[in-house]
Computed example of a mutant assay.
Amino acid sequence: MLDIILDTLLDSVKLLPFLFITYLLMEELEHKTGGKAKNRIRSAGKSGPVWGALLGVIPQCGFSAAASSLYAGHVITVGTLLAIFLSTSDEMLPIMISEAVAPVVIVKILAAKVIIGMISGLVVEFLYVGVMKKHEKEMDIHVVCEEEHCSCEDGIFRSAFKHTLKIFAYILIISFLLNVVIGFIGEDTLAGFFTAMPLVGEAVAALVGLIPNCASSVVITELYLGGIIGAGAMMSGLLVNAGVGLLVLFRLNRDWKQNAGIVAALYGLGVFWGVIIRVCGIVF
């Protein structure tokens, strides 16, 4: 139990700088930028998925959580959010480095995640706006303020600090509960789901990858390196592994139907690309 508490605290504390910087940015945009600047940010949505996929693949703790906060404040689009979720790597990179995986293999996997994130984000953006005729709401940090039941009129630093503490406490509690559950069932049991249903490896891997905990990406990566699952299942699991980003999304975005749609799209895209990789016989 002590190890679970320490791991939860360590993982959660790593998020603090990113959350604080994100809320500072959102406060600054809301309080200081004019209408033209806001419109410029909104128009960047067309290329947002490209930048989101590129930035998401950089090994930085908390980027998916920051992206969810920006999405809840209508700063980035749904296509950009999904691009970030799909490209983020969580624990995969440090594990592969520690296992002395060939650098060219790591680069290929990261490049595949970036390309998949870009393509998927752009397609989602086109379908959402061009086909479904949906329109993103205007940027509004006060949406986050209302959800957190706090005042955004206390200055950008104080408001950002309040938001950071509230989200940190939420992540800390949920992460602790998840760590307890996973510690109880064991990672071996979690890994057994793959071997029990090998014909639907991509679907199972994506379900495991949706667990907002580092243990899921650890299990998927280790199983792939051990030759138990193939590249398709590995990619399905890692593509949907957005970490605490999903927790923050459900905490801040009040539209639960929209949240469910994002999770469904993330899962569907993860399974789809995993199957494509398996059918095409792609190896890394």
Results as ranks from 00 to 15, higher is better:
3 D>F: 11
4 I>Q: 09
15 L>F: 10
22 T>W: 04
27 E>H: 11
30 E>L: 03
34 G>P: 06
39 N>G: 12
39 N>V: 08
41 I>F: 09
42 R>C: 01
47 S>I: 12
58 I>L: 14
60 Q>A: 08
62 G>Q: 03
64 S>V: 01
64 S>D: 09
66 A>M: 12
69 S>M: 14
70 L>D: 00
71 Y>N: 03
71 Y>G: 02
72 A>N: 01
72 A>P: 00
76 I>M: 02
79 G>S: 12
82 L>V: 15
83 A>C: 01
84 I>N: 01
85 F>H: 01
85 F>W: 12
88 T>P: 03
92 M>T: 07
97 I>R: 10
98 S>F: 14
105 V>P: 02
105 V>Q: 09
110 L>P: 10
119 I>K: 05
122 L>A: 15
124 V>M: 11
125 E>A: 02
128 Y>W: 12
129 V>M: 15
129 V>N: 10
131 V>H: 03
135 H>C: 07
135 H>Y: 13
138 E>L: 09
138 E>S: 09
139 M>T: 14
141 I>W: 02
142 H>I: 07
142 H>A: 10
147 E>K: 13
148 E>R: 15
150 C>M: 14
152 C>K: 10
161 F>C: 05
163 H>C: 07
168 F>S: 04
168 F>Q: 03
170 Y>S: 04
174 I>D: 04
174 I>K: 05
176 F>V: 00
178 L>E: 01
183 G>Y: 07
187 E>I: 11
190 L>N: 02
191 A>M: 14
200 V>Q: 05
201 G>M: 04
203 A>I: 13
207 L>R: 04
208 V>N: 02
210 L>F: 08
216 S>L: 08
219 V>F: 08
226 G>Y: 02
230 G>K: 04
231 A>H: 14
235 M>Q: 06
236 S>A: 11
236 S>I: 09
240 V>W: 12
241 N>A: 15
241 N>W: 02
242 A>R: 01
247 L>C: 05
252 L>I: 12
272 F>P: 01
274 G>Q: 13
275 V>P: 05
278 R>P: 03
279 V>W: 06
280 C>H: 03
